[in-house]
């Protein structure tokens, strides 16, 4: 029996090509789950849609916005961000499940790239986020939402939502690999995301919050992300270009910190 030794050369360019292919193999495998288990797709999209409807119809009337902006227009950029951040909790849970099934052990014993399992997981969860954002946009349109700045701003808004959410998938990957137990990961990935998202400009204007909370909410990176998306969807004064840049900066910082942490946890995963 011959060993698989005739491996393609390992020049840096080639290495990167292999790493991308490995990541795509894993991405594909993760996305299969949504195709094969339709109930999973249904239930993971019901919640965001329910949020759109609940917030629009429950809070819509109570929240007075300056300049007579419709609450649904205010809400949608916020709920995009909220959805992509909540969606990132699937990353940690998915990795913990793979770990408990022994799949991570198998992957780690294969001559594949050390980052591919994480890259594949974070990318497939972002693909799912994109799908959900599209679906919510459709629902939003049915109840009066509109991208008010044209097509390209809409594309940039969705890109911003996905990039920011992508940064969060790496935080969740780090948590999932460190905690391992699926149910604990479920709790641990939600417990901080929930208050962080609500104490932001996602659902209500910051001015309506308790005084002490306003300071926190104003500096919350999620507020910048929401305002950045709002700027792209609605224009001034709902956000500003600087919110977009700050959000990209935050995303960069989070990725720079959590990609190495997650990969280090993956290498040590037991």
């Amino acid at each position: 029996m011959t060993a698989v030794t005739e491996r393609p050369n390992t020049s840096p360019g080639n290495r990167i090509a292999w790493e991308i292919r490995d990541a795509l193999v894993i991405t594909r495998r993760n996305l299969f789950k949504y195709v094969r288990v339709p109930t999973l797709l249904i239930f993971s999209t019901v919640q965001p849609i329910m949020f759109v409807l609940l917030f629009a119809f429950v809070f819509g009337g109570a929240i007075a916005l300056p300049g007579n902006l419709d609450y649904i227009d205010f809400l949608m950029p916020g709920i995009f961000i909220q959805t992509s951040i909540f969606g990132s909790t699937n990353t940690g849970i998915g990795l913990a499940e793979d770990m408990n099934k022994g799949l991570i052990d198998r992957f780690r014993s294969l001559p594949m790239s050390r980052s591919a399992v994480l890259a594949g997981r974070t990318v497939s969860d972002s693909v799912r986020n994109l799908f959900v954002v599209f679906l919510m946009t459709g629902v939003g349109y049915l109840i009066g939402f509109d991208f008010q700045n044209g097509f390209f701003s809409a594309v940039f808004a969705i890109a911003l939502v996905l990039i920011f959410g992508y940064a969060f998938t790496w935080i969740q990957a780090t948590i999932g690999l460190a905690i391992k137990d699926v149910e604990s990961v479920q709790a641990a990935s939600f417990v901080w995301v929930f208050p962080l998202t609500f104490a932001s400009s996602a659902f209500v204007p910051i001015e309506s919050m308790a005084g002490w909370l306003q300071w926190f909410a104003r500096n919350n990176p999620i507020t910048h992300a929401v305002n950045g998306a709002r700027y792209l969807v609605l224009g001034e004064p709902w956000g500003s270009a600087s919110d977009v840049w700050i959000t990209l900066l935050w995303s960069g910082i989070l990725l720079a910190v959590f990609i190495p942490l997650a990969i280090s946890n993956y290498r040590k995963a037991v």
Binding site: V4, R29, F32, V37, K101, G102, D105, R106, S109, P111
Partner: peptide, 18 residues
């Protein structure tokens, strides 16, 4: 080393969905 080995761990590490 990983190019030269195969491992089947203590629990069947296969993806149930696939």
């Amino acid at each position: 080393l990983r190019t030269a080995i195969g491992l089947a761990g203590q629990y069947a590490a296969v993806d149930e969905i696939l």
